Deep mutational scan, measured.
Amino acid sequence: TTKIQIRLADGSRLIQRFNSTHRILDVRNFIVQSRPEFAALDFILVTSFPNKELTDESLTLLEADILNTVLLQQ
């Protein structure tokens, strides 16, 4: 498993454990389930350093190389 910290656009944080085989789409779905107010918003996930937009949501967390990292919601 891996721990992902997500810094949300409103300044708050979410921390969740995922399997390395989960997909970026699963992280997006977790955000929307945790904070339904973001469901209607068009947002992207970005790595904190170096900044990289995670546009291919079909990638696993392992394939995207974002295990144990911080993601930013923009």
Rank of each mutant, 00 (worst) to 15 (best):
T1L: 05
T1G: 10
T1R: 05
T1P: 01
T1A: 01
T1D: 13
T1I: 08
T2P: 00
T2H: 10
T2R: 08
K3W: 06
K3Q: 09
K3N: 11
K3F: 14
K3R: 11
K3M: 12
K3S: 11
I4F: 10
I4P: 00
Q5K: 14
R7W: 05
R7M: 14
R7Q: 15
R7I: 14
R7N: 14
R7K: 15
R7L: 14
R7T: 03
L8I: 01
L8N: 07
L8G: 03
L8P: 12
L8A: 04
L8Y: 08
A9V: 15
A9I: 15
A9Y: 10
A9T: 15
D10N: 10
D10Q: 03
D10W: 04
D10R: 05
G11L: 06
G11T: 02
G11I: 07
G11K: 00
G11R: 01
G11M: 11
G11F: 11
S12W: 00
S12V: 04
S12D: 02
S12R: 04
S12I: 00
S12M: 01
S12P: 03
S12C: 05
S12G: 01
S12Y: 02
R13L: 13
R13H: 13
R13Y: 13
R13P: 03
R13K: 09
R13D: 07
R13V: 14
L14A: 00
L14W: 09
L14V: 07
L14T: 12
L14S: 05
I15N: 08
I15A: 09
I15R: 03
I15P: 05
I15C: 12
I15S: 11
Q16Y: 09
Q16N: 08
Q16M: 04
Q16S: 12
Q16A: 14
Q16P: 00
Q16V: 05
Q16T: 09
R17Q: 11
R17Y: 08
R17E: 13
R17T: 14
R17I: 11
R17A: 11
R17V: 13
R17M: 09
R17N: 14
F18A: 01
F18R: 09
F18D: 01
F18C: 03
F18G: 06
F18I: 07
F18K: 06
F18S: 00
S20K: 14
S20L: 15
S20W: 14
S20M: 12
S20R: 09
S20I: 13
T21V: 02
T21W: 07
T21C: 08
T21G: 11
T21H: 13
T21F: 01
T21A: 12
H22K: 05
H22G: 03
H22N: 09
H22A: 15
H22W: 12
H22P: 02
H22E: 14
R23H: 02
R23G: 06
R23S: 05
R23I: 09
R23P: 06
R23Y: 06
R23F: 10
I24H: 07
I24W: 02
I24A: 06
I24D: 02
I24Q: 02
I24L: 05
L25Q: 13
L25F: 08
L25D: 05
L25M: 14
L25G: 10
D26Q: 06
D26P: 05
D26L: 01
D26F: 02
D26V: 01
V27A: 07
V27E: 03
V27M: 02
V27N: 06
V27D: 07
V27R: 02
V27C: 10
V27T: 04
R28E: 06
R28W: 01
R28N: 04
R28A: 00
R28P: 00
R28V: 08
R28S: 01
N29P: 08
N29G: 07
N29L: 08
N29Q: 10
N29H: 03
N29W: 06
N29D: 10
N29I: 03
N29T: 05
F30L: 02
F30G: 07
I31H: 04
I31V: 04
I31A: 11
I31D: 08
I31L: 02
I31Q: 00
I31M: 00
I31C: 03
V32Y: 06
V32C: 04
V32M: 08
V32K: 04
V32E: 06
V32D: 02
V32I: 10
V32P: 03
V32T: 07
Q33C: 04
Q33M: 08
Q33N: 15
Q33F: 09
Q33D: 09
Q33H: 06
Q33I: 08
S34Y: 09
S34W: 07
S34H: 07
S34P: 11
S34C: 07
S34L: 09
R35I: 03
R35V: 01
R35T: 05
R35C: 01
P36M: 05
P36C: 07
P36N: 10
P36W: 01
P36E: 05
P36K: 00
P36G: 01
P36T: 02
E37T: 06
E37M: 03
E37P: 09
E37R: 02
F38S: 03
F38H: 07
F38L: 09
F38P: 02
A39V: 02
A39H: 06
A39E: 12
A39P: 03
A39T: 05
A39W: 02
A39R: 11
A39S: 08
A40L: 10
A40E: 14
A40V: 10
L41P: 08
L41N: 09
L41I: 14
L41C: 13
D42I: 00
D42F: 04
D42G: 04
D42K: 03
F43I: 00
F43A: 09
F43S: 03
F43Q: 00
F43R: 03
I44S: 10
I44A: 07
I44Q: 04
I44H: 13
L45P: 06
L45I: 08
L45T: 07
L45D: 05
L45M: 05
L45K: 11
V46M: 12
V46I: 10
V46P: 00
V46N: 02
V46T: 06
V46W: 09
V46F: 02
V46E: 11
T47A: 10
T47I: 14
T47D: 09
T47G: 07
S48T: 13
S48P: 10
S48R: 14
S48L: 13
S48G: 12
S48C: 10
S48E: 15
S48W: 10
F49S: 14
F49D: 13
F49I: 09
F49P: 12
F49R: 11
F49E: 14
P50E: 15
P50A: 11
P50S: 13
P50V: 01
P50G: 15
P50R: 08
N51R: 15
N51T: 14
K52Q: 10
K52E: 07
K52P: 03
K52T: 06
K52R: 15
E53Q: 12
E53P: 12
E53M: 12
E53Y: 05
E53A: 12
E53K: 13
L54Y: 00
L54S: 04
L54P: 07
L54D: 01
L54G: 05
L54I: 04
T55I: 11
T55P: 09
T55M: 08
T55Y: 08
D56S: 02
E57A: 07
E57G: 00
E57P: 00
E57Q: 03
S58W: 12
S58Q: 00
S58I: 12
S58V: 00
S58T: 12
S58H: 12
S58K: 05
S58M: 07
S58F: 09
L59V: 10
L59T: 07
L59E: 13
L59R: 02
L59S: 01
L59G: 04
L59K: 09
L59Y: 06
T60G: 00
T60M: 09
T60K: 06
T60P: 03
T60L: 01
T60E: 07
L61W: 01
L61H: 09
L61M: 05
L61D: 08
L61F: 05
L61R: 07
L61S: 03
L62S: 13
L62D: 12
L62R: 13
L62T: 12
L62C: 13
L62N: 05
L62A: 15
L62W: 13
E63D: 05
E63M: 03
E63R: 05
E63F: 03
E63C: 08
E63H: 11
A64S: 08
A64C: 15
A64L: 09
A64K: 07
D65A: 01
D65K: 08
D65H: 04
D65R: 09
D65Q: 08
I66W: 14
I66A: 10
I66G: 08
L67D: 15
L67T: 15
L67W: 10
L67V: 11
N68M: 04
N68F: 01
N68Q: 05
N68R: 01
N68I: 02
N68Y: 07
N68H: 10
N68V: 03
T69N: 08
T69K: 10
T69H: 05
T69V: 08
T69A: 10
V70Y: 00
V70F: 03
V70A: 13
V70S: 13
V70E: 15
V70L: 08
V70Q: 13
L71S: 13
L71W: 09
L71A: 04
L71M: 10
L71Q: 13
L71P: 06
L72W: 15
L72E: 03
L72D: 11
L72G: 01
L72R: 03
L72I: 15
L72K: 07
Q73F: 12
Q73I: 14
Q73V: 15
Q73W: 03
Q73D: 09
Q73Y: 08
Q73L: 08
Q73N: 04
Q74P: 04
Q74T: 00
Q74Y: 08
Q74D: 14
Q74R: 15
Q74F: 04
Q74C: 09
